[in-house]
């Protein structure tokens, strides 16, 4: 990035935790020049109505994603392992608390 070029900053992805104890979920993205500004901009943009109790902000270029063109082959090792689900198992009639 050259000194003189006008820029609106890098892209950051924002993850919000709506309540303590819940998982963080992607909320959207934000532009900022550094960490501090990223977290302040994200607060102003995504938590104006108390949507967040926790927040992660991550440089978008640090995220590693599955290529959508081969996502089916990437995930298919799980497809033939039905025995990983509790419904796979045959249990005697009348069993309780399982």
């Amino acid at each position: 990035m050259s000194e003189s070029k006008d820029t609106q900053g890098e892209l950051w992805e924002v993850f919000l935790q709506t309540k303590k104890g819940l998982p963080f979920k992607h909320a959207g993205s934000v532009h900022a020049y550094d960490k501090e500004m990223a977290i302040q901009n994200a607060r102003d943009l995504y938590t104006r109505r108390g949507e967040g109790r926790g927040m992660w902000v991550v440089p978008a270029n640090a995220i590693v994603a599955v290529d959508p063109s081969d996502d089916s082959s990437f995930f298919d090792p799980a497809d033939d392992k039905v025995y990983r689900h509790p419904t796979f198992y045959e249990l005697p009639e009348g069993i309780k608390n399982m």
Partner: peptide, 18 residues
């Protein structure tokens, strides 16, 4: 606002706190 954006880039570079 251009000078603000420029200053922000310079600040981020100086403290490289990314």
């Amino acid at each position: 606002g251009a000078w603000v954006r420029k200053a922000a880039v310079a600040y981020a570079k100086k403290y490289s706190n990314k």
